[in-house]
């Protein structure tokens, strides 16, 4: 995959479109693996599938953002390893000095993938990009849900 957009922000319409396509492609694959209609309605199937949709959502976001983003690399790493040890996510204490109350910066580190190891400036930059991509992803999913429930 080419990342021709470089480090331009996520709000350009072309990257929104790429995100929509990338997610839809994974999403359609989740659908086609459905064995039978009866089985697809069971609570277990619903949960399993919504988990897979969620993973598809986050991984689409990260792939479209590209490997130059620390949060995207960290998110993909987390998604690739979480199946084995979901609860053993390590939480490193950061030694980076911070100009603002530690609890806010600390909270942000925990919310932004890969935020643990960043200095404050990088953390804030990555946070802005992460929010951009996350809200674009929510828009895409909302649009698909709207589209599917109409029909």
């Amino acid at each position: 995959m080419a990342y021709e957009s470089g480090i331009t922000p996520m709000n350009s319409s072309s990257s929104s479109l790429r995100l929509a396509r990338t997610f839809l492609r994974s999403f359609s694959r989740i659908k086609s693996r459905r064995p039978t209609t009866a089985a697809s309605r069971s609570a277990f199937e619903l949960r399993r599938r919504s988990r897979r949709i969620k993973i598809a959502a986050y991984s689409s976001m990260a792939r479209v953002a590209g490997p130059q983003r620390t949060w995207a690399r960290a998110l993909l790493f987390k998604l690739n390893t979480r199946a084995r040890h979901r609860t053993s996510m390590r939480r490193r204490c950061s030694t980076m000095p911070s100009a603002y109350p530690d609890d806010h910066v600390g909270k942000l580190r925990r919310l932004v993938p890969g935020g643990d190891g960043m200095d404050v400036c990088t953390l804030l930059e990555e946070t802005a990009d992460y929010i951009h991509c996350l809200s674009a992803q929510v828009k895409v999913m909302n649009a698909i849900a709207h589209h599917l429930s109409k029909n």
């Binding site: 619903l46 949709i53 919310l111 946070t127 996350l134 999913m141 849900a145």
Partner: peptide
């Protein structure tokens, strides 16, 4: 960010139901 995470959770469930 927490709200957006929650929205992704909810929408994943919603889409799963819609697929069913």
């Amino acid at each position: 960010i927490k709200n957006l995470h929650r929205e992704v959770d909810d929408l994943s469930e919603r889409l799963s139901e819609l697929l069913a």
